[in-house]
Design a protein around this nucleic acid. Structure first.
Lengths: 246, 246
DNA sequence: CGACCGATTGACGACCATCAAAGGTAGTGG
DNA sequence: CCACTACCTTTGATGGTCGTCAATCGGTCG
């Protein structure tokens, strides 16, 4: 029971240790951070624009996405979040949310009260730095998405998105035998890349025909990583991973 | 002389006080922060992708922009920075830069050594929070740009960009008589919105013809703010201003 | 006055959106 | 077990937004 309850804390420790080295004391502080586990089905809103959250969460299992909608009902997905991500960490310091966050698949989420997070940030400034850095590296991903959606053709754009997901999933151990899951429909990928589902479908067919990706249901494999990187003009530097270079 | 040297520090104090309330001690800490003033001409790179900066800067006067380039040489402007902004604050915690930053006009910049910034952040956690918040609100702008460039037609997109600049410039007192300066060519505005200069030119003509903006050289005025907001689907919430509502 | 840079215009074409319909697949219930 | 449903994927046809190429215009500066 106690063992089970510490899993999300261990996950958070791993996450933060991928950013900064931790002392035993800091590790213990996270170990004892109250985290409330919530299970959600696919396609549920977790938080909404305008909310004043009193807690933030880490994705423990499953995929979530950040999105906004325009007046005429078009949706733009701004970020795809995978296990280990903390999509609304910003709410620690921005009083209300300017985004919606929803699950893409069934998810297990770990909620942390803002007051608890603020407390350990004050007590252990290096943890604050680590969280800050986490938001900064998300920021770098936003920047790359602006470039990707703004200046790349759809073929390249999709290849780039798949490259990013592969590298990020790999970093949290979710790529096995060069194969990973993207639980997103073509319509959702289109919303992430600012395209229409129809065009997304056609370009995905091209990518498959060119042997750059192989898709079975929501599982994707990449036969030739270097070729896909090239097609996607993908350079993982913006992800700011310390260890791995893809 | 001493008076003159404190101007950038006063500017930083004003900036931070627009985010959090400061104690006298905190104010003094910023007052004594060493800031090195550098003047730059237009179209100069300030920092470049791959750099490992040991300092970060505040724009004191003039306009700067963050940009990236694709392999085929297309440029995407990711952010337009105005006086009071700290475009590479992220470099405090991300070891290398994933972006280029250049001046759009002649600029006066105030450089702060990382070690000095880190010192006051450690000593005064509320200052760290303020800087963190500053990066978070920039992040919110990135998000809105993804929506803007991804899901809005060019006409709406440009209107939105102009709205954003007007509100941000207004917040730092750079709008007078409903008129402000955007020292950016049409080509640069095109780079910011993911369009071509030719199309930018045509859409700007439309906006002028519709009476939404009046342009003289690089000076813009907005005859009917509500109409422009409507055309740009502009809602300033994402800017996270505490006081003003546009 | 000439050179240069940005704004403007025109012609043309490509990429991608839109609309509509059909085919596949998974899940549900009788 | 099969019919039914719902959702996603796929396909076709068509059109619009915007990109591309190229030339001209206009203002500024040395």
């Amino acid at each position: 029971m106690i063992q089970a309850l510490s899993i999300p804390n261990d996950m958070m420790i791993r996450k933060i240790e991928s950013i900064v080295a931790l002392s035993d004391e800091e590790r213990q502080a996270i170990k004892h951070l109250p985290i409330k586990i919530v299970d959600m089905k696919a396609y549920q809103d977790i938080v909404n624009m305008g909310d004043h959250p009193t807690q933030c969460f880490m994705v423990l299992e499953g995929f979530a996405c950040v999105y906004k909608e325009t007046i005429d009902g078009n949706r733009q997905i701004l970020a795809i979040h995978i296990p280990g991500d903390m999509p609304d960490l910003q709410s620690l310091h921005l009083p209300f949310l300017d985004i919606n966050i929803a699950t893409l698949s069934a998810c297990k989420l770990g909620f942390v009260q803002h007051e608890d997070a603020r407390r350990i940030c004050e007590q252990y400034p290096r943890l604050a730095t680590a969280f800050w850095r986490e938001t900064l590296s998300q920021s770098a991903i936003y920047r790359e998405w602006i470039v990707n959606n703004g200046r790349r053709k759809s073929y390249t754009r999709i290849a780039h998105l798949i490259c990013e997901l592969k590298v990020r999933l790999n970093a949290v151990g979710l790529v096995r035998n060069n194969r990973f899951i993207i639980p997103a429909s073509q319509a959702e990928l289109a919303d992430a890349t600012g395209m229409t589902p129809v065009h997304m479908n056609r370009v995905l067919q091209e990518l498959r025909a060119d042997g750059l990706i192989k898709v079975e249901r929501s599982s994707v494999s990449i036969p030739d990583w270097e070729a896909l990187k090239l097609s996607g003009e993908f350079d993982p530097l913006y992800l700011h991973f310390v260890n791995e270079v893809a």
